[in-house]
Design a protein around this nucleic acid. Structure first.
Lengths: 112, 112
DNA sequence: TATAATTTTGTCAATTATTGACAAGTTTTA
DNA sequence: TAAAACTTGTCAATAATTGACAAAATTATA
């Protein structure tokens, strides 16, 4: 899997013989906007990952990996970040996990 | 370097004997908001990275690595992404670079 | 070829998120 | 204990994102 997330969706959709309208309906989206997503002109909203997984019977975890990997890649490309950035990210994830084992949970706004 | 970006700024600031007000001035920020940034309650705006680099005579590239690494780590922690996400990100950066060598540049809105 | 279906693009108001600013509170320092 | 430094809460202003629709372009098919 090397494509962007939009290209990936398009691939899934066409492989399964769906039109934009059909998939957009399942994702609770306008077909015009799904087109933009597939062509990289709009972002796919994280909230719809589960619907996308259901639409094609995909593993949500794998989908998340594709999705966030894509987001990070876009940012890195856009800002010309060094590959080192990803190593730093890995360290910092571990750091965040370690301090939260000790100190309880960080609250993010997407949690209730 | 394992700390969050906010902790990193605080470290730099205190090591150099600056108050919030003093550093905030250099960053064109309100000291109250800088406090929130240091404590992870607000985001540091990418546009201020250069000012931060100047304030402490840091290499902008290294700062970017810390900054974006921190952003990715937060997202991964927040959404409980697998470590694999970073490998996917690396592949996709290369993919983006390869298609743009071939096809010309992707335009991002932050470019003029 | 025409016409129907599909996809793409443009636009814009509405919603949502982020920011700057200031007041008020707390903690630290001298 | 007074001043300085830091933190927290709030909110209007600004900015970014989204949904929706119209219309243009492309593709498929009768």
């Amino acid at each position: 899997m090397k494509a962007t997330f939009g290209e990936y969706i398009k691939q899934l959709r066409t492989d399964n013989g769906l039109t934009l309208t059909q998939l957009a309906f399942q994702l609770d989206l306008d077909s015009a906007n799904l087109s933009k997503i597939e062509n990289g002109k709009r972002e796919f909203d994280e909230k719809r990952l589960e619907k996308l997984a259901n639409a094609f019977d995909l593993d949500l975890e794998k989908l998340k990996t594709e999705y966030f990997g894509d987001q990070f890649a876009k940012k890195m490309y856009q800002y010309n970040c060094s590959p080192e950035t990803l190593i730093v990210a890995e360290e910092k994830v571990n750091y965040l996990k370690s301090i939260n084992v000790k100190q309880g949970e960080i609250k993010f706004d997407n949690e209730k």
